[in-house]
Design a protein around this nucleic acid. Structure first.
Lengths: 255, 255
DNA sequence: AGTGGTAAAGTGGTCTAACCACTAGGCCAC
DNA sequence: GTGGCCTAGTGGTTAGACCACTTTACCACT
């Protein structure tokens, strides 16, 4: 393919002159709108959403599209639809699962608490996951980890890409840990992590630093040094927290 | 209300002579059927489900009901519906979140691995959750925990009820931990845990033993002895594993 | 007082049938 | 090559009708 007089497509693309078009289903956009309303408190737990006929008319869609949206919100445990009564708004804090974390990042106000929780949780799971991986990793896992490390070598200038690789690295470790629940857990938080990769990037250090830790962790895992691997993982995942939060009185003695 | 010549309703009810009627929505039953098929491999990742028109006819329902079901499966990351193409079955092991754990317990064959993963994960999170709770629990949390312990006193003969209280106890500790992500995580696994309470009951010991641990953990949390509380929690949550699995070479030194 | 039948209003659940929108593949004109 | 166009297959959306459930109130028995 020869060069042509068009917008250069290589390198970090500048913003194009047109707006992308929202091609999502109506039901998806309805879900977004209603979920935002619920998380923001427009409808409070214990209240009912407007009747389907009314709500669909307000939204300018048919009941069919609205109802597809309601099924999704129900699966997210944000509402409970009752035949003959209506759609009851539930308390997401005691009902909704990890999937909604992504939306809390987008909407909830006291972000600091949410971010702290997320980093703390990441450190907690990451540490144990690595410990297990060191016990149980099989050659195929080690190969996969090595390959990721190789690929990272070419991404030392692309902070965002490195962040994605970081997640992939720990996903592979989760595979190696032989714990299917942890594997599913990472699936649950993947979207949250990738959507906020930029924010996490500010906390997790430079690409070179990330890769250095990955390298050391892999070495420890390969050598089956579970304690050392876990200590490295904890150190790595605590970097960001130390950078952004006053170090709390911390009596942890995990290593 | 006087006594009447009808089936006694007190005490553990014997099985009634009639079958309960499935009042769930069509879409829910469709979801069950399709999800089972996907997890069992009837349709494999990369394949497309039959076209909506065809599938709805096979199921004996309209596209409307089928499509509500598809939205749920899509939210569970088991399928991806593409306009103009069809509904693609995805690999649940790399896509689906913790919500599906419940169904893996019901359908997947190598249950031992899943059960081991669940117990291992429970121990891991439970331990750290207690550690955090000891650091941060506030009076209101301690009161709630005390109340639960009181209620447990009346349930020492009801293994199943005790199991539910156990979950409630740790949910409250999650509140006390001040970590919203862990709180949401417990929501994600609640259904799995309660639906399989019987199975876990076999592993977690007698009600009296459970309560004794709860009491000791609460005492340590109240005294802000994070290390001791965590050690107790780990011990408690490891009991079941030791009972059912050969103790693996374990290099953990978490306490 | 308690029980059960009935009716009405409001709301969710399901169906029918048609039409719109997107994707992929093949063909063709430029 | 590129773009236009057609066609077949599939999902997306609409409109309106009707069924089923819940709540409330009223009423008729016992």
């Amino acid at each position: 393919m020869r060069d042509r007089p068009t917008t250069p497509s290589s390198a970090p693309a500048a913003q194009p002159p047109v707006q992308p078009i929202d091609k999502r289903r109506l039901s998806e956009r309805i879900v977004d709108q209603l979920r935002t309303g619920i998380l923001a408190g427009t409808w409070k737990p214990g209240e009912f959403l407007p009747p389907e006929r009314e709500l669909s008319q307000q939204l300018g869609v048919t009941r069919v599209s609205l109802r597809e949206a309601l099924r999704v919100l129900e699966r997210e445990d944000l509402i409970e639809t009752r035949h003959g009564e209506g759609s009851l708004v539930k308390d997401f804090m005691t009902g909704a699962g990890l999937q909604i974390l992504k939306y809390l990042f987008e909407t909830e106000l006291p972000q600091a608490e949410i971010l702290r929780s997320a980093l703390e949780f990441r450190a907690l799971v990451g540490t144990e996951l690595v410990r297990l991986a060191a016990d149980r990793a099989r050659p195929a896992h080690l190969d996969a980890l090595t390959r990721i490390l190789d690929e990272e070598a070419g991404l030392l200038d692309d902070h965002a890409a490195m962040q994605r690789k970081d997640f992939e690295f720990f996903e592979t470790l989760a595979d190696a840990s032989g714990n299917i629940v942890i594997r599913l857990l990472l699936n649950s938080v993947r979207q949250t992590y990738l959507d906020n990769a930029g924010m996490f990037a500010l906390l997790t250090g430079e690409p070179r630093e990330i890769r250095r830790y990955h390298r050391d962790i892999l070495a420890a895992v390969r050598a089956r040094k579970g304690v050392r691997a876990a200590r490295l993982a904890r150190e790595y995942m605590t970097l960001g927290m130390e950078r952004f939060f006053e170090r709390e009185p911390d009596e942890n003695q995990t290593a």
